[in-house]
Computed example of a mutant assay.
Amino acid sequence: MVEERIGYTFQDRSLLERALTRLAYTLEAGLPPEAHMDALATLGDAVINVVVVEVVVMGGAHDKGAISNRKMNLVNMTRLRGLAEDLDLEEYVRWGKGEAAQAVWTSGRVLAECMEALIGAVYLDGGMDAAAGVLRRLGLTESV
């Protein structure tokens, strides 16, 4: 179960379900437009950036360029995709039929977006401390 893997239990299970539901799946299943992950992925991207920048600044960085470089090294598609792969996140996501047939999670940014959606859902459910805790447990910010 994803919650065990990330060390966070959702109070609002619908947020977790939404974070793991692709747009293609919602269209095929006739679900309402707000039932897919896209908005959560956008939110999660912002939350991840805030958490990482806060950790970098609290770690003593004060130069804008150094902070930006450190953030870029920590938060990128490859890192987020790697976190998602470590969680086997693709096994929990509700994919559209075409996505599943093509195994879209094996290339590009798809799994990184799923990871962002998951963090967005954690943020809405438990706030910034919960999201930061998940990112720390997953190893994104532990080496900052």
Rank of each mutant, 00 (worst) to 15 (best):
L87A: 04
R18G: 03
M37E: 06
N49K: 13
L138A: 09
D63E: 15
P32D: 06
P33F: 12
H62S: 14
G7L: 06
Y123G: 00
R22H: 10
Y123W: 14
K71T: 02
L135C: 05
A41P: 07
L31N: 01
N69H: 09
G133C: 07
V56S: 08
V55M: 08
R136S: 10
L43I: 13
L87G: 07
D129L: 12
Q11G: 01
V50K: 12
A66Y: 03
N73G: 15
L43M: 14
L16H: 00
E34A: 06
G7S: 07
F10H: 06
L89G: 03
E113H: 10
I6A: 08
L31I: 02
M72D: 14
Q11C: 00
G44F: 06
K97T: 09
L40R: 04
R81W: 00
V52E: 03
W105N: 03
P33V: 12
V57L: 12
C114K: 01
R109W: 07
L87R: 03
S14W: 00
L40C: 08
R70T: 15
G108V: 07
G96W: 03
V57K: 15
Y8W: 07
E3T: 05
L40M: 06
A100W: 12
G7P: 08
V47M: 10
V104T: 13
D45L: 02
V104S: 07
L87P: 04
G126H: 11
E99C: 05
T21E: 04
L89E: 01
A101Y: 04
A35M: 05
L87T: 07
A130P: 03
A24V: 07
R70F: 08
A101S: 15
A46S: 13
G108Q: 05
V75F: 03
A130E: 05
L89W: 02
R22Y: 05
V51W: 06
V53R: 15
V2Q: 00
Y8D: 09
L80I: 05
D38S: 12
F10C: 10
A121Y: 01
V104P: 02
N49C: 04
N76E: 00
L135Y: 02
A131H: 04
L16Y: 06
